[in-house]
């Protein structure tokens, strides 16, 4: 009979990425750069939200954006045209998420000198990006009203890793059976610490609160 040699490994496949992410975070800390990982499903209004928000804060802090998509550079161009800030496109080469190493490679292409805040717009997807620590200081996600208030029940991991949940497209609330109280309750079930801010990127409602949150976060990161 053939003999089989067994080598025990017992190691999480995410262990290496977690290490890379911690290294990236401390490096960014040293350079005074705050990295926000922004996640959502496709079509939740990430790019529009970013444009509105960046225009509110770009005179106070220096912001850059990294857009991650499987393909195309429409979002990076849109952000640059609408805000005038540095915006680059990352292609994930078919992958549904970014990991810490890909984030680092992206940051290598950003002129970080003098930049206070880098916003990483992750691939539109509620499953995979939640599993991979990118090295960001905080995770935020956008949930839009048409998607329904039960998303935190369906995508538990995404909501448990997010520090901030923006509920976008509040202008269409009258047309949907979206229950904001239920949404807050479900988010709290996944992460009692998570903050929920209802916004409407189109009208600008609530975007100021997100902008204030970002300014406070960046300030805190630089001075702590």
């Amino acid at each position: 009979m053939e003999k089989v040699k067994v080598i025990e490994i017992k190691k999480s496949v995410f262990a290496e990425n977690d290490k890379d992410a911690d290294a990236l975070r401390s490096e960014l800390k040293g350079r005074g750069v705050y990295l926000l990982n922004l996640m959502s499903s496709p079509g939740s209004g990430k790019t529009t939200t970013l444009i509105k928000t960046i225009n509110l804060i770009k005179d106070k802090i220096r912001v850059a954006v990294m857009e991650a998509d499987i393909d195309s550079d429409v979002d990076a161009i849109k952000i640059k045209e609408a805000t005038g800030i540095q915006s680059i496109q990352l292609h994930t080469g078919g992958m549904c998420h970014l990991d810490a190493e890909m984030t680092r490679q992206g940051l290598d292409n950003v002129a970080l000198e003098g930049i206070d805040l880098v916003i990483l717009e992750n691939v539109g997807n509620l499953v995979c990006p939640a599993e991979f620590d990118t090295g960001a200081v905080r995770n935020a996600m956008i949930l839009s009203v048409p998607e329904g208030h039960d998303k935190p029940l369906k995508y538990p991991l995404m909501f448990s890793v997010c520090d901030l949940v923006l509920v976008n497209k509040t202008d269409v609330l009258p047309y949907f059976d979206f229950d904001m109280d239920k949404c807050r309750e479900y988010v709290a079930m996944r992460n009692p610490e998570a903050r929920v801010i209802p916004i409407c990127a189109k009208t600008g409602e609530g975007v100021g609160q997100f902008a204030d949150w970002l300014l406070a976060e960046v300030n805190n990161w630089k001075n702590k």
């Binding site: 040699k5 067994v6 025990e8 017992k10």
Partner: peptide
């Protein structure tokens, strides 16, 4: 998240979240 025995929400996952390589086998 809700405990079926007492209804509390103060619960956490003990195991079931693993994505790990247990071992590798080599024929000799």
């Amino acid at each position: 998240k809700k405990c079926p025995n007492c209804g509390s929400g103060a619960t956490w996952l003990l195991r079931g979240n693993e994505v790990e390589i247990k071992e590798i086998e080599i024929k000799e």
